[in-house]
Design a protein around this nucleic acid. Sequence first.
DNA 1: CTGAAAGCGCTTACAG
DNA 2: CTGAAAGCGCTTACAG
Lengths: 322, 322
Amino acid sequence: MPRVTSADVARASGVSRTTVSYVLNGAAKPISATTRERVLAAARDLGYAPSAAARALRSGRSDLVLCVLPDWPIGAVLDALIEHLTEELCARGLLLLLHHGRDPRPLADLWRSVQPRVVVGLTPFSAEDERAMARAEVQVLTTGEHSGLVALQERTGALQVHHLAATGHRRIGYAAPDDDRVAGFAAQRLAGARAACAELGLPEPVALEVPLDAAAAARAVRTWHPDAAGAVSAVAAYNDDVALAVLAGLRAHGLRVPDDVAVVGVDDTALGRLADPPLTTVSQSVEVQAHHLAAQVIAALDGQAPPPRPEQVVHLVRRASA
Amino acid sequence: MPRVTSADVARASGVSRTTVSYVLNGAAKPISATTRERVLAAARDLGYAPSAAARALRSGRSDLVLCVLPDWPIGAVLDALIEHLTEELCARGLLLLLHHGRDPRPLADLWRSVQPRVVVGLTPFSAEDERAMARAEVQVLTTGEHSGLVALQERTGALQVHHLAATGHRRIGYAAPDDDRVAGFAAQRLAGARAACAELGLPEPVALEVPLDAAAAARAVRTWHPDAAGAVSAVAAYNDDVALAVLAGLRAHGLRVPDDVAVVGVDDTALGRLADPPLTTVSQSVEVQAHHLAAQVIAALDGQAPPPRPEQVVHLVRRASA
DNA sequence: CTGAAAGCGCTTACAG
DNA sequence: CTGAAAGCGCTTACAG
């Protein structure tokens, strides 16, 4: 079962490959309606699909958008992102190519061989990689400080503290995740919380790792117990999941939320809303951000200026827990 | 900044392109150590990476694995899958190419132009597509009944009912998800639950949609209230998330779990474990299944027999809620 | 041990 | 309006 090529289509419709190409690519060249019809019919009948490889070789660029995934689990963000990106790229005949960031091979080998239209990084690239891609005129998009996707970690932490302070809390705990892979994010959010405490004249937040496990969470939470040395009246958690672990830990000690300890999360997840009490949280607007990233990719493809950063990607959603 | 080609490497090291290719691809041909060295050094210095397009054109097959995503959100499964698949494929120099199932263009155009090593479908392909791919000798993997990834929905529902029946429940509710996109799965799980009830001589399960929203869940749950017509003593939920919504709904009515109503979920999520009470659940072993799918892809690549289906991908995890 | 040559399938100047 | 020809970058028989 050999591959059907444009030569086959040409033969079947009694024209040259040139004409086939003109017809199929809607070239500016005028082609007679009868020829057009015959070529299209032949292509359809034979099930012809042009070779992406040959096309890429000829044109010097593939129909691929390379997305370099980070080393950490991105859950909801990844989901929304892939959903939007694959779909919007599809609409333009492009394909999303995923690559795992942990690959030991140099990134340069990848984009040099694949020749993608755009390279999207969910994590910043090395300065050297950035330079090399710029030199090769490869469009690059990273979700760093300026992109809006993974942005504003510090502001998130600060927002949590400001809300807790505004509701009268002074001794604040920070519940960090157990997972080393998100340690970078956690550190940035904690830094934001810390800075806010300093700014507001509050004592340093009491930071603690709280695993997503009831027993371990209960052990961790002891430190914050009203009778303990690290007593706090409120906890800012890395995200809603960690906040739910905090809730479980406090429950194990018979502490009530928000009366004994207030809790504020991040992400505005459905399960945070279903908790008892429903979580007060900072929304990072995953949907908005995923859409924005997709829009950035599209703009980059079209050589247009990047779209304006969405307003207010981070905002507080007040519910019962704080 | 024109592309660096094997010709450049050949020129820089004073040999022919043939020799460059032999060295870089570790051909069976013996090449003198000095030549080898010179070629490798030149390749490194020039930042040479072979063109994937040219290679694919030459060999007739790309280094891509095409993954067709379904129309529904797959959350944890997608996460685990992409994580494992990108990583394991990376290790073999392959790349994961994502495609959105909702694309209106025929799937055939895609695999014909891309010429992937394997096509993985997270949802079954049409019979016509299957046939065409088979004819073109394209390796296909679907996660249907036989694959283990999305398998055994009915068994999952049945397992929930068997557990509830074993703990003395006779009137059982089924909490279906709100999301149309997973309606297929939900129907299969419910069918399994229904069959189990019939087999055990229990009345039909009382099926209800329970949204992931506290107020809506509370409304839905009224039907199951001990004083209502649809009264049940236990609920099997589509998954842990829905089970948490059921918990929230029951809580709103002052009903206690498991004393007034027992609840069993599916997925064994971290947040289900953190709930109050911790959820009894059916584990579908996402990790195991993702790994199995990756193993299937690898086996298909190597032309080996598919790996044995993992034992017991579905099992009950007993905790406090049922 | 190394090189000259063909050919994968496409598109696009260039000629008619 | 249509076609013959070149060339994108690679690998691999085939000759030396």
